[in-house]
C-alpha cells in the first residue's frame, strides 16, 4: 500500500487541511516511509484476537436523566472567532 500524490490530496481534503501542490510529493514520501515501517505489523498473528477496547475490566457507566448542564450561552460563545447575537457565525453556506 503506497500513497501517491492524488491519494495524499484526497486524504488532506478529508482531513480539511489545505496542502499546496508542491508539498504533496514530499508529504507522500514521508507518509509512505511511516506506512512502510508500519507494514511489519502484518507479521503478527492476530487470528481470533479481539481488538483492544479498554485497558481496565470495566463496563460503560450510565448517568441519570437529569438536566445538570447548559444554560450559559455567553460562556459557550465567549471564545468564538465570530459571534452574532449568541449564535456562532460562519461564512454563508449555500445548500
Amino acid at each position: 500500500m503506497s500513497l501517491d500524490k492524488a491519494t495524499v490530496a484526497k486524504v488532506a481534503n478529508l482531513a480539511r487541511i489545505r496542502v499546496e501542490e508542491n508539498d504533496l510529493e514530499p508529504l507522500a514520501n514521508e507518509l509512505n516511509a511511516i506506512l512502510g515501517w508500519v507494514e511489519q505489523l502484518s507479521e503478527v498473528d492476530t487470528e481470533n484476537v479481539a481488538p483492544m477496547t479498554s485497558v481496565a475490566e470495566m463496563s460503560l457507566r450510565w448517568r441519570d436523566d437529569e438536566v445538570t448542564d447548559g444554560g450559559y450561552q455567553q460562556q459557550v460563545v465567549a471564545n468564538a472567532p465570530a459571534e452574532e447575537d449568541g449564535f456562532f457565525a460562519v461564512p454563508k453556506v449555500i445548500e
Binding site: 480539511r16 489545505r18 460563545v77 471564545n79 468564538a80 472567532p81 460562519v90 461564512p91 453556506v93
Partner: peptide, 20 residues
C-alpha cells in the same frame, strides 16, 4: 468555528482547510 484561530476562506470548507 467556536474557538481559536480562524483563517477566512472562500466558503466554509475553504475556511476549514485554511484554518487547519
Amino acid at each position: 468555528v467556536r474557538y481559536g484561530l480562524r483563517v477566512e476562506g472562500e466558503d466554509l470548507a475553504d475556511m476549514y482547510s485554511r484554518t487547519r
